[in-house]
Design a protein around this nucleic acid. Sequence first.
DNA 1: TCAATATGTGAACGTTTGCTCGCATCTGCT
DNA 2: AGCAGATGCGAGCAAACGTTCACATATTGA
Lengths: 224, 224
Amino acid sequence: MPSKPKPAPARSPKPRDATIAPRKAPRQARARVTVEALLDATARVLRESGYDGLTTNKVAVAAGVSVGSLYQYFPGKDALVIALLLRHAEHQHGAFQRALLHVADAPIPAVIDAVLEVLAAQQDSDPELAFILMNQLPRVGEMGQLIAYSEEKLSVPLHAFLVARRGDLPELDLAATTFLLTHAIPPLLQRMRIARPSKEKRRAVFQELRKMLVAYLTRGPART
Amino acid sequence: MPSKPKPAPARSPKPRDATIAPRKAPRQARARVTVEALLDATARVLRESGYDGLTTNKVAVAAGVSVGSLYQYFPGKDALVIALLLRHAEHQHGAFQRALLHVADAPIPAVIDAVLEVLAAQQDSDPELAFILMNQLPRVGEMGQLIAYSEEKLSVPLHAFLVARRGDLPELDLAATTFLLTHAIPPLLQRMRIARPSKEKRRAVFQELRKMLVAYLTRGPART
DNA sequence: TCAATATGTGAACGTTTGCTCGCATCTGCT
DNA sequence: AGCAGATGCGAGCAAACGTTCACATATTGA
């Protein structure tokens, strides 16, 4: 317990330029715990209050540490969000890539099933947070670029897969197909979780999505 | 010009509960002008600074009116945003519905072309604002529900169309198809505008999207 | 053992921002 | 013309927020 915290002058006005990079890395184990706690708390606060309701003090309290500690590792709230976003994206990206590798030689419909399953599972794991991270962050400045970058990462393994299986696909502009799939499907799944449809409707939508993808990605007679 | 603006006491603390409904309707013509100016200014500020950078004072200045006037018609910044969102949604919804009616009896691929064109044009008309309105607003509380509601509106005419043309479509769960299309395509188009791809890539993605929709919505041999 | 260093604390401050209120000005109506 | 109500004004307050700093405590390493 602090004995005499003494008034303290407090000088600085308001920089407000908010850098993004972590301030310093934790060296001791307890510091790593603190940093983890801060990220978890950030996630919790984001879920509960959205990006707008995120304040450094709230995060510190939620993490059970003091604001001072927070500022020791993160230069501001955006740095917290970015760190969380990167952690999240890393996870997603890894799982997706593994799933694709796992079905690298399976028939296309089986690939579609597998990939959809993985994506659905990801959405299920923490839908609110995922939604906030993907849709509620300000797309401006450094942060906007980072978000775009983290979204684009999904497209790398997908494009590689499509190129590798080109022979089993109809004639497609693979780059365009990659863009189409990576930018249409994740938002759809997000909305699905947010809308909280009944189990049946959920199943039905998945069914239709599967139909659509199979129709698109499977060789068939040319149509009008 | 006011003669003696007199210090003014200013009592109230900070309600901060921010209601959403407009405070009162303009009765005279100049008031309607003011309200319009406020909404336009809101759009401008949103485009320039994002939702986070939106402040009532900024909006008032941008609209060329005083904050006081703003608060006469809107109880807070969220009310401004909501009003703008509703105006926007109304627009989109109308254009979409008209487009569908216009091609009510055309062959499915022609319908797809027409609808895609309308959607693309909408995205083109004010991409930044559309993006902010759809993706950057806090999805919490009353506002979240309103956003969801305004998104859902697209699905009504689409579902009606699909039901009417059921005979020309493959076997589908039309409700699920509606959900699928209304929640996958608009976000895709939004990302497309944000990513600012080259003209060729843009065309290519549209081409692939069209292929996918035709393959999905057109009768064809059953596949795996 | 004990200094050097890493980590943790929280009160306080300067800004920003939402919002109101006492008035001034304008419009529509009779 | 003249008045009642509608509209417009904008300085200023209070709360909220980000951020810092002087200090306390824990850990490490020699």
